[in-house]
Amino acid sequence: GKELVLALYDYQEKSPREVTMKKGDILTLLNSTNKDWWKVEVNDRQGFVPAAYVKKL
């Protein structure tokens, strides 16, 4: 099944490779191999968020 993460904080994208999320959002985790930036999918968009801003559910 898909792995989900919870947004712990708001995050505003700073580049086209990133995505914006709001605290409390549930996101689909696509890739967590990089310890600093995790790739997630939110609202049919894929991009990176800081790993410290999310936690695995």
Rank of each mutant, 00 (worst) to 15 (best):
K56R: 12
K39Q: 13
K23A: 13
S32F: 07
V49E: 00
Q12G: 08
L29N: 01
K35T: 11
V42N: 15
T33I: 09
V54W: 01
G47M: 06
L29E: 00
K14P: 04
P50A: 02
F48C: 11
P50H: 02
T20V: 03
A7K: 01
M21I: 15
E3Q: 14
V40R: 00
K35N: 12
D25Y: 05
K35M: 11
S32R: 07
I26T: 06
Y53F: 13
D44K: 11
L8P: 00
P16F: 10
G24F: 05
L6P: 00
V42K: 15
F48A: 02
T28L: 14
R45K: 12
A51S: 11
N34G: 10
P50M: 03
D44C: 11
L29W: 01
K55E: 13
R45N: 05
A7M: 02
P50I: 02
W37C: 07
W38A: 04
K22T: 10
K2T: 14
K56I: 15
Y9G: 06
L30Q: 04
D44L: 09
Y9E: 10
K23L: 05
K35D: 10
E18K: 04
V19M: 13
L8V: 09
K56F: 10
K55V: 15
D36A: 13
I26N: 03
T28G: 09
G24D: 06
N34L: 09
G1I: 14
V40P: 00
S32Y: 07
L27A: 08
K23Y: 05
M21R: 00
T28N: 09
K35V: 13
F48H: 05
R45M: 07
L30M: 08
Y11G: 01
W37L: 04
E18Y: 06
L6E: 12
P50G: 02
P16Y: 10
S15V: 04
Y53D: 03
K14D: 06
V54Y: 01
V49I: 08
V40M: 02
E41L: 10
G24Y: 05
A51D: 01
K22D: 04
G24R: 02
E13R: 13
R45H: 08
E18F: 06
K56S: 08
D36V: 14
L4K: 14
I26E: 03
W37V: 03
L4F: 15
E18P: 05
V19T: 06
P50T: 01
N34I: 06
K23N: 04
K39P: 01
V54I: 08
A51Q: 06
K39F: 15
V54L: 15
E41C: 11
L57K: 04
D25V: 04
K35I: 10
E18S: 07
D25C: 06
K55S: 12
P16H: 12
A51N: 03
V19N: 04
T33R: 10
Q46A: 12
W38Q: 01
A51G: 05
N43T: 09
Q46S: 11
G24P: 00
V19S: 03
L30N: 02
D25G: 04
L29G: 00
P50Y: 03
S15P: 05
L57F: 09
V5T: 03
K56E: 07
P50C: 03
S15F: 05
D10W: 04
E41S: 10
E3C: 14
K56V: 11
L27Q: 00
E41Q: 14
N34W: 07
T33N: 13
N34P: 05
D36I: 15
Q46C: 09
D25P: 00
E3M: 12
V42C: 11
Y11E: 00
R45P: 01
R45W: 04
I26V: 12
R17F: 14
L27I: 08
E41D: 07
Q12K: 13
N43K: 14
K14C: 10
Y53K: 07
A52T: 12
G24H: 05
W38P: 01
Q12H: 15
T33F: 10
M21C: 06
G24K: 02
Y11A: 01
N43G: 15
E18H: 07
V5M: 05
E41F: 07
S15I: 05
I26Y: 06
M21D: 01
V54S: 01
D44N: 14
Y53T: 07
F48W: 15
L30W: 06
E13Q: 13
K22A: 08
E18D: 06
Y9D: 07
Q12I: 14
E41Y: 07
V19H: 04
L27P: 00
I26Q: 05
I26H: 05
L30T: 06
W38E: 00
T20P: 05
Q12W: 12
V5A: 12
K14L: 09
E13Y: 05
D10N: 09
G47W: 04
L29C: 07
K55D: 07
V49Q: 00
Y53E: 02
V40N: 00
P16T: 11
D36M: 11
G47K: 02
Y9K: 15
V54C: 12
L57I: 15
K35Q: 11
L29Y: 02
L57D: 04
K55P: 01
T20G: 08
K2N: 11
N31G: 07
W37P: 00
I26M: 07
E13G: 15
N31K: 07
P50E: 02
V54M: 06
K55H: 12
P16G: 10
T33E: 15
L6Y: 11
S15K: 07
E18Q: 11
G1Y: 14
S32E: 14
G47P: 00
K35H: 11
R17H: 14
M21S: 00
N43W: 10
R45C: 06
Q12E: 14
L4E: 06
N31E: 15
K55G: 08
E41K: 09
V19F: 14
N43C: 11
T33L: 11
V40C: 05
Q46P: 06
K14R: 12
V42I: 15
L27M: 14
T33D: 15
V54T: 04
Y53M: 13
D25Q: 14
P16E: 11
K14N: 13
V19C: 08
K39I: 14
L30V: 12
L4V: 09
D10F: 04
R17Y: 14
L8N: 02
T33C: 12
I26G: 01
V42E: 04
A52Y: 09
L27H: 04
V19G: 02
L27V: 07
K23G: 05
G1Q: 14
Y11C: 01
Q12F: 13
G1M: 13
G1F: 13
V49S: 00
N43I: 12
Y53A: 11
K35S: 11
L29S: 02
T33W: 09
W38C: 04
E41I: 09
V5H: 03
K39D: 03
A7L: 02
G1R: 13
D10G: 06
L30G: 01
G1K: 14
G1E: 13
D10A: 07
I26D: 00
V5W: 08
T33Y: 10
E41A: 12
K2Q: 11
V5Q: 01
E3T: 14
N43D: 14
K2R: 15
D44R: 09
V19I: 14
D36R: 13
L8A: 04
Q46Y: 08
Q12T: 15
E41G: 08
A7H: 01
F48S: 03
E13W: 05
L6H: 05
D44V: 05
R17I: 12
S15H: 13
L30A: 03
M21Q: 01
R45V: 08
N31T: 08
E3Y: 11
K39T: 08
Q12R: 12
Q12Y: 15
G1H: 13
Y11W: 12
L30S: 03
L6C: 09
W37Y: 07
R17A: 13
P16C: 08
K55I: 15
V5R: 02
R45S: 06
L6M: 14
W37N: 02
W37H: 04
A7Q: 01
E13T: 09
K56G: 05
D44W: 08
T20N: 06
D10Q: 03
M21V: 10
K56W: 08
K23W: 03
V40G: 00
L57T: 07
E13F: 06
L6Q: 11
V42G: 13
G1C: 13
K55Q: 15
T28F: 11
